[in-house]
Amino acid sequence: MEPSEFEAITLVHDGNIVWITLNRPERLNALNDKLLNELSAAFDYLAHVDHRVVVINGAGRAFSAGYDIGSDSAEVGYADERDSIEDRDRLLLNIDIFMKIWRHPLPVITQVHGYCMGGASQLVVFSDITVVADDAVISGSPTLPIGGGYIAPLWSMLVGPKRAKLMSFDVGHRIDGRTAAAWGWATESVPAESLGEHVRSLALSIARTPASSLKLKKEAINRVSDLAGFASIARMGAETDALLHLTPEVRRVQHSIKERGLKGAIAHFQEFGID
């Protein structure tokens, strides 16, 4: 797939910098199959294109609201439509896509504004540098208990186990950009009005370094995380999530979404919880 065929993302070359924009602003750039497949194709394409830095950002009001669990997407339906093995394999496919960011030989910056929720925070962990707006709204779990163990373990490597547990146990718990930087989930936090210019300036500064040097620097630092089990941790959560998708409690949440709609299901959960 060529960049000219992309619809859910855009890819623009700007000298030595490549800008990838999540481009579903009407859905707050929620991650559906189309977007994820195009993101995968984008990194396959970049393997054969000269550049030195990649920046991933989001169109409109948000970086991304996370996995699209609305009526046009499949996260809530994964376990309904597949057995546990098929469900696990589908979840692993998402990890394989994000690993293309991790394994991409050159630096990848994520530029986060507005909402960065659930699966979007998972995507961001795989990038090399994350710059967030001070007022960004970040959550490591969906706003409904529809799974678990898929996202939080990777947070643990950045923020420590106790903070990762807070973000996982308290469904939908949110932090702002300043807190994300203070915890170590983000590299730095800047005022929202200067986010774009700050990231551009950073990307240009990094791009002064030859690609060969950047490749070796990234490989050396990534190797430390790989020795600590980064790739294994990223994949193991798919098994836990697939099991949870089959529990009666998650089935009730799925039914609630179908019956009340996503917003209605969230409101019902916030008032009554899940028995």
Rank of each mutant, 00 (worst) to 15 (best):
P142K: 08
I138A: 08
V131G: 02
R90I: 01
C116N: 06
I221V: 12
Q122V: 02
I138L: 13
Y115D: 11
P161W: 08
A192I: 03
L214F: 06
I95V: 14
I97A: 00
G160H: 09
P153V: 09
P145W: 10
G148P: 08
I146M: 15
Y115W: 10
I138Y: 07
Y115M: 11
V131D: 02
A152F: 07
E188D: 09
E197S: 12
T179H: 11
D87E: 13
I85E: 14
S168E: 15
L204K: 13
I151M: 04
E197H: 12
G172F: 01
G147W: 13
W155D: 01
A133V: 09
D96N: 04
L154A: 06
R90L: 03
F98Y: 15
S168N: 11
R208W: 07
P145C: 07
I206T: 08
G147H: 09
G160K: 07
M117G: 01
P142A: 13
G184S: 06
M99V: 02
E81A: 12
Y150H: 09
A207M: 08
A186C: 09
D170G: 02
D134E: 15
Y115A: 12
A136F: 03
Y115K: 11
K162D: 13
S212D: 15
A152R: 08
M117F: 12
S225G: 09
C116S: 05
R200K: 14
L92G: 02
L202H: 04
L144F: 03
I101G: 00
R223H: 14
S225M: 12
E81Q: 15
N222T: 08
V132H: 04
K100G: 01
